[in-house]
Write a protein that binds this DNA or RNA. Structure first.
Lengths: 244, 244
DNA sequence: CGCGTCCTTGAACCGCGTCAAGCCAGGTGG
DNA sequence: CCACCTGGCTTGACGCGGTTCAAGGACGCG
């Protein structure tokens, strides 16, 4: 797949480059009018609210959540610079999920009509978008197995590796370039803060990680990988990292 | 959304009608050359094999499986007459999943090139297919929460309701019009046959269901619903039923 | 200094997976 | 027609992992 799939004209000008390998969109919506700043903790959109379009994250980090059983918050996906958010609602009446900024975030909004127009005029864009959904579907499915069949130890190990892949490391040290509370990590796994703490402490004892303040420093990536591999055999998959 | 989205010409002639409500394709591929019969237990395609195209089920029932951790079989989706199978692999090298006939099944195969050609020539078809993927994504996600947060009791109750929605009831009685082994039900939940048996027996004691031979007769649908609702609060969602 | 929030650790409970034994039905062969 | 065997279903006992509850500690903030 070549890189530049299509240029659609927003209000002013916008261009999406689809990097098919990572299945994420890097938006060069530099002149987009609908740019907006969301502060930490602020909602881009809420679960159940009407769908007006898609959000392209230009800068920042976002968690995509959905309210699960007995009010538990489930983190469906984490997204950062260059990712699309809101596509899970595209074509529907209301959003099945909400999106919250984890840190100050700049996002660009493109409304349904503009997207639809672009899709109708450019089959290749539509096709690319379809493939994007297809990939999302696969990732979600991989994650599904993760939730269904892994132990907590494995889930935590997997999640740490996933966080590294998604957000990378702080330039200074190997600390993950994302700050999540125990509660938030638990929300990704469908578990509890206590359990997360326990397992992280265990990993620290095993010299797999080190806690530095609230940051996490990965000492032995292969060790984490082994924890999963020991039980799973096949992790020839990309990370599950779904999107919304 | 209108019903008839597009007619693409297969080798001979074929026409897909997308019923957007159910997000399933009813294929009227009556003259399609690539029709083929698969007997119970036979694979339509296997996990890891090359992707050549999509399968439209004209008659029968199919389970879509993927090999999970430590070799456990995970049932990703059940499909029956009018459904599409294989779209999870579309656009990729190899299938991430396999499909097995649960009973004698007639499926029609359409190859990648034909699909691609149709997509390029008909943006509305592509758009509709994209929306189909989008819906699949939602369903998979709902199922994700199910696996992550429900207890086994709730999962079994949910699955019974799901089976009823998907396959309906035998005309004679309220028995589910699908025959699954305990093992297969367990594979849908990421559990074990023993656990499924236990819970089904419990449900029988509660007069929620009755076992008639190998068939299951649902006596009190609302009771099953209550089991889920008691703990979940909001089940304002469609069934999760994902596809492959 | 005191308060709130989050993290940490311990202890008790319980759901569920595992192992093992018994049961029932269908199929086969004597 | 019965004896036997086989495979799936059922039920019980047990142990482990994980959730829950509760108490104490670390840190930031007014």
């Amino acid at each position: 797949m070549e890189k530049q799939i299509s240029c659609i004209t927003c209000e002013t000008k916008s261009c999406f480059i689809i990097q098919h390998g990572s299945a994420e969109w890097i938006s060069i919506i530099d002149i987009c009018k609908n740019q907006e700043l969301y502060e930490r903790g602020q909602y881009l959109f809420r679960e159940g609210s009407r769908v007006f379009g898609l959000y392209f994250i230009q800068q920042g980090k976002v968690k995509v959540i959905s309210t699960g059983l007995n009010g538990k918050e489930q983190i469906v996906r984490l997204a950062s610079t260059g990712h699309v958010v809101g596509h899970r609602g595209f074509g529907f009446e209301v959003y099945p999920i909400g999106a919250v900024a984890l840190e100050d975030t700049i996002a660009c909004f493109v409304d349904n009509d503009k997207m639809y127009e672009a899709f109708m005029n450019n089959p290749r864009l539509t096709y690319a978008m379809m493939m994007f959904y297809s990939l999302e579907l696969r990732k979600t499915e991989i994650r599904q197995r993760l939730l269904a069949q892994m132990t907590m130890r494995e889930k935590v190990a997997e999640t740490l590796l996933h966080l590294k892949e998604t957000f990378g490391l702080d330039s200074k040290k190997n600390t993950l370039d994302i700050l999540l509370s125990r509660q938030e990590i638990a929300d990704m796994l469908g578990s509890t803060p206590e359990q997360v703490t326990r397992i992280l402490s265990e990993f620290e004892d095993l010299r797999l990680i080190r806690k530095e303040g609230k940051q996490i420093h990965i000492l032995n990536e292969k060790g984490l990988y082994d924890i999963i591999a020991a039980h799973s055999m096949n992790r020839n998959m990309q990370t599950w990292h779904t999107s919304d």
